[in-house]
Design a protein around this nucleic acid. Structure first.
Ligand SMILES: Nc1nc2c(ncn2[C@H]2C[C@H](O)[C@@H](COP(=O)(O)OP(=O)(O)OP(=O)(O)O)O2)c(=O)[nH]1
Ligand SMILES: [Mg+2]
Ligand SMILES: [Mg+2]
Length: 587
DNA sequence: GCCGTTTTCGGCCCGACTGTTTTCAGTCG
């Protein structure tokens, strides 16, 4: 994460201000931290160019502290707060069910400076009979202490689950709940998973039902549920075996739209939207819209947004990063919709592949309504084969059951040149070398600015691979105004989102083009392509900058972005009725 | 501390669940 250091500073200030008991300021610091975390530009760059206070939620005071941090590596204000409150208090505050108010009391009334002190206090029965601490609360404190706390200063990303794994867990959970015969009508996922964040903190589920008690009962008794944190008529929180937390909200069906809007978030998006509604004399909650004391249910998300004069906003863009202002002016970019994707271009196969091996892939491509597959062999492996690349190409059909078959060759780049396409290959997958380059910037320029007479894309541009070559993401981007750039791969692998949204968003603004890929290892993993589409939407990438929305991908890989052909069909809001399944990959 | 389509000062999103406090505070989503 690029802005991690400054984010941690601001979050620590927020926690300490919470201990002080001040209102609004802690949230202001957290809001600013969350905004910087998502910024497509690095803090240093924003400071250097004097644009730091343009970040939403960053005003004069926070700008000044960020500038100080960039300059000196310290923030005096934070040091002052640290001197007031022992560091162990921040650990205490992270205990389950323990917040700033409780922590403050422990410190001021009992001189408790950290978890060990609290443990002793409870052992010595000093909390018994104290106002506000009944037997149940003491029991819960003990339980929380025994579970331990995450160390203070841990990365904000730690303890979160990578998107592809979270999606997998969610599919399994949905399956279990359906099998449980719980009496719900709709059941969908929400939260950061629906927003396709690179990592998710927990799984958020929304159901509609007229019998919420029974739904909750079955949910909290699923076999994979290890612990029930809390459970009421409309909301339950459980922990699955393995430690993943799941929140379930159950609402009446006429509240589905409002509830889905609420539960999809993000929090900052919700707060902004609700404040906007208030200025228009409305109030929004998870059940609907209130005007003149009258609650009007909202069956669809579109109705919620329309009530405050906005068009529907794709979930992935709901991060309070300017999308609300854009939706007010009908100015949301035409981001790529799932249905616009025409193929997958990064299907790794062994060079020994034969025609019949393509069939399971083709079957799944067809099921996803895709019209081509790009099968990729490594140059190093082809060399060891008896068969030449040309013979391989000739052994494979150009089309199977209406699905076009392309052959890609994966080539590791060397310092200077961009290779031409050898006979047999339809296109090249270029990857950075694994050893550090002598002059990375010069090499990057050579690769990305060569005339694009060959169909090629630059893959394996994850932070790790770039670092081993000594490359930086920004070296790969088109020059200002350059149209003719080498497309970059945006991949969601089985284990991780390989490219960061913030970086992609920055690149997209400079007209970089992208090839979306789910890096499938087997046909069942092809639907992961849709997660890559979600990441592209998070980064506000317009469809016309996505190579695999083109029905002629080889010319798209060669040429600058073709102007969008027909009227592009972007993402669509969920339908009001019908039993259509929620969009989403199965992997 | 931030911010504005009635405001540059005065508000700041809104609700569920729990334990304990007899009427609600704290924490969390
Ligand atoms: N209006 C409002 N909605 C909230 C608030 N906190 C959370 N929500 C909504 C929006 C969130 O996306 C949704 C789920 O909450 P989570 O804590 O699970 O957050 P989210 O899934 O966005 O991120 P995560 O990856 O779980 O950390 O609930 C809040 O303070 N106010
Ligand atoms: Mg969540
Ligand atoms: Mg949650």
């Amino acid at each position: 994460m690029p802005n991690e250091a400054v984010t941690r500073i601001l979050l620590e200030i927020a926690d300490l201000l919470d201990l002080e008991g001040v209102k609004f300021k802690p949230e202001a610091y957290r809001r600013a931290a969350r905004a910087l975390q998502q910024s497509p530009e690095e803090t240093e760059e924003l400071v250097r160019t004097g644009r730091i206070d343009q970040v939403p939620g960053v005003g004069e005071a926070i700008s000044e502290k960020v500038r100080e941090f960039v300059k000196t590596g310290e923030v005096h204000y934070l040091e002052k707060l640290r001197a007031q409150w022992p560091p162990g208090l921040l650990e205490l505050m992270r205990l389950e069910g323990v917040g700033p108010k409780t922590t403050r009391r422990f410190y001021l009334e009992f001189q408790v400076k950290g978890p060990e002190d609290l443990e002793r206090l409870i052992q010595e029965k000093k909390l018994e009979g104290v106002f506000g601490f009944g037997p149940r609360k003491i029991e819960l404190l003990q339980k929380a202490l025994s579970k331990g706390v995450s160390a203070a200063g841990a990365s904000p990303e730690s303890g979160r689950t990578p998107l592809p794994e979270a999606q997998q867990r969610m599919e399994e959970l949905l399956e279990s709940l359906r099998e449980s015969r719980a009496p719900f009508e709709k059941l969908v996922f929400a939260g950061s998973l629906r927003r396709r964040r690179e990592t998710v903190g927990d799984l958020d589920l929304l159901a509609t039902s007229s019998r919420p008690r029974e739904v909750m009962e079955l949910f909290t008794h699923l076999p994979q549920v290890e612990e029930v944190r809390l459970s009421g008529d409309t909301k339950s929180t459980v922990v699955l075996t393995g430690g993943l937390q799941v929140d379930l909200r159950v609402v009446p069906s006429q509240a589905f739209g409002a509830a889905l809007q609420y539960f999809t978030g993000s929090k900052d998006h919700n707060v902004h939207l609700r404040a906007l509604a208030n200025r228009k004399g409305l109030s929004i909650n998870e059940y609907g819209l209130t005007r003149d004391e009258q609650l009007v249910p909202a069956p669809t998300e579109e109705e919620v947004y329309a009530a405050v004069g906005l068009s529907w906003i794709p979930p992935e863009m709901r991060e309070n990063q300017g999308e609300i202002e854009a939706a007010q002016e009908e100015g949301l970019p035409a981001v790529v919709g799932d249905a616009e994707l025409k193929g997958e271009l990064h299907i790794h196969v062994p060079p020994s592949i034969e025609q019949e091996d393509l069939l399971p892939w083709v079957e799944e491509l067809r099921a996803m309504h895709l019209t081509y597959g790009g099968f990729v062999v490594r140059a190093s492996e082809v060399e060891r084969e008896d068969r030449t690349l040309e013979q391989l190409r000739n052994a494979l059909p150009r089309e199977v059951e209406g699905v076009r078959v392309f052959l890609g060759l994966e080539v590791t780049l060397d310092a200077k040149t961009r290779p031409t396409t050898p006979a047999g290959a339809d296109y090249l997958i270029l990857r950075p070398p694994e050893k550090p380059l002598a002059d990375p910037k010069e090499s990057a320029r050579a690769w990305t600015s060569s005339p694009t007479s060959v169909a090629a894309m630059l893959a394996h541009v994850d932070p790790g691979s770039l670092a081993s070559a000594g490359l930086e993401w920004k070296d790969l981007l088109p020059e200002e105004g350059e149209e003719n750039s080498l497309p970059l791969e945006l991949a969601v692998r089985h284990d991780v989102v390989a490219t960061e949204t913030a970086l992609v968003r920055g690149a997209s603004r400079r007209s970089a083009r992208f090839v979306l890929s789910g890096a499938p290892r087997s046909p069942e993993e092809l639907p992961r392509l849709l997660l890559a589409a979600g990441i592209a939407r998070r980064a506000w990438v317009p469809s016309h900058q996505v190579v695999n929305t083109s029905s002629e991908p080889m010319s798209a890989l060669r040429n600058p972005a073709n102007p969008p052909s027909a009227s592009p069909k972007g993402p669509e809001p969920p339908k009001r009725s019908g039993s259509r399944k929620q969009d989403g990959p199965r992997t």
